[in-house]
Amino acid sequence: MTPPSKHDDDSLLREAARFPHVERGQRVGLFGGSFNPPHEGHLHVSETALIRGALDQVWWMVTPGNPLKDHSELAPLAERIRLCRQVARHPGIKVTAFEARYKVNYTEQALTIVKRYHQDVRFIWLMGADNLAGFHRWQNWRRIAGMMPIMVVDRPGSTLAYRSARAAIALSRYRVDETDSELLADLSPPAWTFIHAPRNVLSSTAIRNSRKNGTAD
Rank of each mutant, 00 (worst) to 15 (best):
D8H: 06
D8G: 05
D10N: 13
S11F: 15
L13Q: 07
E15L: 15
E15A: 15
A16Q: 05
A17L: 05
H21Y: 15
G25W: 11
R27W: 14
G29D: 07
G32H: 03
G32M: 02
S34D: 07
N36P: 01
E40T: 12
L43A: 11
L43E: 02
V45L: 11
S46L: 09
E47Y: 07
A49T: 05
A49K: 01
R52N: 14
A54R: 12
W59H: 06
T63W: 08
S72D: 14
E79S: 13
R82M: 13
A88F: 08
R89L: 11
P91W: 06
K94V: 01
T96G: 01
A100V: 05
K103Q: 14
Y106V: 02
Q109F: 01
A110K: 00
K115W: 07
Q119S: 13
D120A: 11
L126N: 04
M127E: 01
M127R: 02
G128M: 01
G128R: 02
A129D: 01
L132Q: 00
L132T: 04
R137H: 11
Q139K: 12
N140F: 08
I144P: 09
A145C: 12
M147Y: 07
M148N: 05
T159H: 14
L160A: 15
R163W: 10
R163E: 08
I169C: 04
I169T: 13
A170E: 06
S172E: 11
V176F: 00
T179P: 03
S181W: 05
L183C: 13
L183P: 07
T193M: 07
F194C: 02
L202V: 15
N209Y: 02
R211E: 13
G214Y: 04
T215H: 05
A216S: 10
